[in-house]
Design a binder for these strands. Sequence first.
DNA 1: AGATGTCTTGCACACTGTTCAAGTCATGGT
DNA 2: ACCATGACTTGAACAGTGTGCAAGACATCT
Lengths: 222, 222
Amino acid sequence: MVAATRTSTARAGLERDDVVQAALELVEEGGAEALTMRKLAAALGVTTTTIYWHVGHRDELVIAVIDRLARQLAQAPVVGRTPRDRVLSAARNIWTNALAHRNVTALASQVGATTLLELPLEVALVAEFEAAGVRGPAARDALRSVLMCIAGFLIGAWRPDDASPAPLRHGALWSTVEDPAIAPATVEAMAEPPDVERLFTLALVAIVDTYLPAAAHPETAP
Amino acid sequence: MVAATRTSTARAGLERDDVVQAALELVEEGGAEALTMRKLAAALGVTTTTIYWHVGHRDELVIAVIDRLARQLAQAPVVGRTPRDRVLSAARNIWTNALAHRNVTALASQVGATTLLELPLEVALVAEFEAAGVRGPAARDALRSVLMCIAGFLIGAWRPDDASPAPLRHGALWSTVEDPAIAPATVEAMAEPPDVERLFTLALVAIVDTYLPAAAHPETAP
DNA sequence: AGATGTCTTGCACACTGTTCAAGTCATGGT
DNA sequence: ACCATGACTTGAACAGTGTGCAAGACATCT
């Protein structure tokens, strides 16, 4: 929030950065659909046309918002002693970051600009992959696999808030299943909310170990 | 497409099923954003109000569309001799199905009703998990992990079409990276488009093997 | 013939992104 | 001092979206 309401048709003293910053706050608080040209204009005490003058179309505004958040994001430190631990740490940084700024991440995902938001973290992850012996096309495939996995678990982690219409939630639909091939205990288990954090960790480890050289990760315990 | 243009204010002979069917065709051809009350009305040679009379709000229309596709979907057969192969086959059925009807799947994903679309396939997958010895909460976690993984790779498989603004595509952004910790060959590899199918297969196997009892899947080759 | 319930229409409202001509202001050159 | 240029801002408008209301047309039953 930069300026308050204004009456006369005078100068608002706005700069492009102020508009983008206000838009960023709007998205962080109210989600992607809260970013409306008119709402943004109202928050700045200004008319929509002013926004067009400063930053242009909504698409440009959106990528400006993403770019701004990307710049002000602290690059989380990678921890761990073994190469495998460091890879997992770097990957988890992307996950944690996306969760912390879920609204902007969702916005970036909608316009296909997630990389713009997370490039430094992706670079850090690839660096750790290379340190672990994964290079070239293999490092690219490993990165992409981890990113897609993160994307999937993200939408899994978002859903609970969205509160999709009660009768078609996952658990509700499964509670109607009566199949002789499926144990009642399993159907019952479907009603419980997922522990996304734990499931993500398991999946991440599984995928990372797929790409790490066999020597880098422990075989099944003796 | 059911009826053509009409002029007088007479009876169109529409039924709820006709409206939903036309909406389904609209989505399958033009994507989620092609499903507009006015466009649907025009396709039926009718006014928007008529749609409201037959099926109600847009949300109800959307879940009706999803439900209709779900009913007319053939339940793909599960193949494979070993329990592990059958689990992978059942999981791949969900993936293939989602790709074949990507527009409706995307629509379902937006409103959080993917399970409504894929419930029979999910049930088949869980049945195979149980046949492989994974039951109760473990089967639930396995299912959810596979579903989230599929969701992530789906948006990875969709992106290429969307044609996000050229300068912020994945490869374009990575081509600007100059980091001493990253080999040039790796940066170069990022420019190539992903082989989503292969990456998905690897990730799926990794996740499935995480949940299957150790005896069910082969250890690393000797 | 008249009434009832099933459909269908036209019009309207609030909201979205976007554009255009016109206005106000500060700062420059003459 | 004047006024011209460019930086900013405004009001009104257009097309498109989902949605609701009052009223009309039709088939069928009484």
